[in-house]
Amino acid sequence: MTTPPRPTHKEFDVDHEYGRQARAPGGISRDAALLRAAAEIERVKPQVSDYIMQECHRLDAALHSANAEGHTDASSVAEAYASSQRLRDVAQTVGYPLLALIATNLCTIFEALEAAQVDYPAAVIECHHKALRLALSRRYRDKEPKDLPELSAGLWQIAKLAQAMRADAKTDTPADAKSEQLKAS
C-alpha cells in the first residue's frame, strides 16, 4: 500500500475581526469619511508644515555638503536621500506639491545612482537644489507644478531618465554612458 503524498501547502479562509466589524452596518459612508479625513488633515497641517520647513533646511544643508568642492561626501548624500524620502512621504498630502515633486525626483535620482553605480551628477542635483530653494520661498511655497510649467517639465524629464536608469541598472549599458545621459539631461 502506497502512502499518499504529503500536501505541499495548506490553503484556508480567514475570517478576521477587522473584516467582520468593518462590513457591519452602522459605519460611515465613503463621502462622509473622506470629508472628515480632509478636515483632520487640515487640523494637523500646521504642525506638519513646520516640520516640512525644518526638513527642507536639513535637505538644503545636506545637498550643500554632498558635493562641496567637487568631492562627493557619501554620508551627506545618504542624509540628503533620507531627508528627500521624509519630505516625499508627507509634502503632497498637506499641500506642498512643488516640494513633493522635487523630493520625489531627488529620491529617484539617488536610487538610480545606487542602482546604476554612476558618478554623482552634480549639475542635476544642483538644479534640484535651486528648485528647492525657490519652492521654499513664500511666493512659490503653495504653487502647483502646473503653475510653473517650464520648471516642472525639466524636473519631470530628469525624473523620467533617472527612473529608466534605475530600472535599467542590470542591463549592459556602460556606467559611463549612463552618467553622460544624466548629465546631458
Binding site: Q21, A22, G27, I28, S29, A37, A39
Partner: peptide
C-alpha cells in the same frame, strides 16, 4: 460604508509626522 469604530489599529512608522497624517485620516474614517 465602513465601520471601524472600536477596532484597534497599529501604526508602525519611525516618522511621527507621517503617522500624524495617517492617524488623522483614520480618525476621520471613524
Amino acid at each position: 460604508s465602513i465601520n471601524i469604530a472600536g477596532l484597534s489599529f497599529l501604526l508602525a512608522d519611525p516618522n511621527p509626522h507621517s503617522t500624524a497624517i495617517i492617524h488623522g485620516i483614520l480618525r476621520g474614517f471613524g
